[in-house]
């Protein structure tokens, strides 16, 4: 079973993404910001990160930069999920180390497809 870490400060967004990804067969953990996500990623191996942009203490971009530059963390693909849909937001996500960019709110089918695609899980 593939493990996903959902990083979002909004409780209902985490619950929503958890429901979608659990139904799609993933084991799901949650973090409320980038610092907590790094703590988790240092202690457990994840196959995918689903990352919000705006979070207190450590935003999604910085989380990705720190994740990508940390040799002690298992490097897995990351989907950035954002309310912002402009080109510059996408560019910032790529630059920070995201592998995919989706706008909020996500649709269950789309998130599931992307999660399978990035983790190499055949559907």
């Amino acid at each position: 079973m593939k493990h996903v870490l959902i990083i979002d400060d909004a409780t209902t967004v985490r619950m929503y993404h958890r429901q979608i990804l659990s139904e799609a067969g993933f084991a799901v953990d949650e973090s409320i910001n980038g610092v907590e996500a790094l703590e988790k990623a240092l202690t457990k191996r994840y196959d995918l990160f689903v990352v919000d942009v705006n979070m207190p203490k450590m935003d999604g971009y910085r989380f990705l930069r720190e994740l990508r530059s940390n040799a002690d963390v298992h490097q897995a693909p990351a989907v950035m999920v954002s309310t912002e849909a402009e080109a510059k937001d996408r560019d910032a996500a790529w630059a920070a180390g995201a592998n995919y960019y989706m706008t909020k709110p996500t649709k269950p089918g789309a998130l599931t497809r992307v999660a399978h695609l990035l983790t190499g899980e055949a559907q």
Binding site: T12, M15, Y16, Q19, P105, K107
Partner: peptide
């Protein structure tokens, strides 16, 4: 058409 709204308002 927004499953997220249905989900969280339902919650």
């Amino acid at each position: 058409d927004e499953p997220f709204v249905t989900f969280s308002a339902g919650n």
